[in-house]
Amino acid sequence: MHALKKHRPLRRVTLTAAATVTGLVLLLSLKPHTPPTVARASPSAGRSPSRSGAPSSTPSPASTSATGTRTVTGDTVQTRWGPVQVRVTLRNGEITDVTAVSSPTDNPRDQEISSYAIPQLRREALAAQSARIDSVSGASYTSDGYKRSLQSALDSAGL
């Protein structure tokens, strides 16, 4: 008869408990695929760091041309996989273009997700004419950052 059958139930319990603890330790020791990074405001975004060293939550100023077209850059939103920031072009209060200024691209998987999510989010924003858009399946963090940055741009434009 096998050693772990009827004659040694305590050994079976001990081995099961040890395997469970080992599995939990291994599971809890998993790390995200990229380490978190500190977001810094770029000079091109038109922001200055706040006293705490974090990026300012004030969106960059809007640029205006003679035709009534304005471009507004939203806040940089720090997501789990990297920063997301959008720039909105408005003509007479209507969204005519949405451009992703930054999105997660640290590794091939981030690039793949951004390459299919950003165009879908752009189409949604142009169709909805607001930040009330659906998230892209499989890109929930990027979608959330996109919507929050878009909303900050629209808020700063007064829409």
Rank of each mutant, 00 (worst) to 15 (best):
S137Y: 00
T58V: 14
T89S: 08
T67Y: 02
P43W: 03
D97S: 08
V136D: 09
D110H: 07
R70S: 15
S44G: 15
G158M: 02
D134K: 10
D97T: 06
Y146M: 02
A45G: 12
T76Y: 07
S114P: 03
A153G: 06
S115R: 04
G68E: 09
S57M: 08
A39M: 07
L15T: 07
N107V: 01
V88W: 04
A139I: 03
S48V: 11
A157R: 06
R47M: 13
I133H: 02
S102K: 01
R123W: 05
L159V: 10
A100M: 01
I118W: 07
L28S: 13
R91Y: 15
T89H: 00
R11I: 15
L26Q: 13
S60V: 06
G46H: 00
K5D: 12
T89L: 06
P108E: 12
I113A: 05
R91W: 10
L150G: 11
V88R: 00
A41R: 02
L159W: 03
D155M: 02
S29L: 08
Y116M: 13
R80L: 15
S42T: 12
K31V: 13
G82L: 02
D110T: 05
S152R: 05
S56T: 09
Q151F: 00
R70W: 11
A19V: 08
R11C: 12
A128F: 00
A45Y: 04
T22A: 15
T16V: 14
A125F: 10
D110G: 08
P55C: 09
S52A: 10
T64R: 15
A125T: 06
S57C: 07
P83M: 05
A66L: 02
G23N: 06
T96A: 13
S130Y: 00
L26M: 10
P49I: 01
S29A: 10
K6V: 13
H2V: 11
S50V: 09
D155Y: 02
A139M: 01
E94F: 06
S29C: 09
L121S: 03
S57A: 14
R12W: 01
L28D: 11
A17P: 05
T96C: 04
Q129F: 00
G53H: 03
V21R: 01
S56N: 01
L27Q: 07
A3M: 13
P108S: 14
V84N: 03
R123K: 15
A66H: 11
A128V: 03
S63R: 02
T67W: 00
I95V: 12
Q151C: 06
Y146Q: 00
R80P: 12
V88I: 04
I95L: 04
L24T: 11
S115D: 13
R122P: 09
V136G: 04
T58S: 10
D110E: 06
A45W: 02
G68S: 06
L27K: 08
W81I: 07
V21D: 12
K5Q: 09
L4M: 03
D97C: 02
I95Q: 04
S48Q: 12
S137V: 03
R40C: 10
S60T: 04
A127R: 05
V101C: 13
G68W: 00
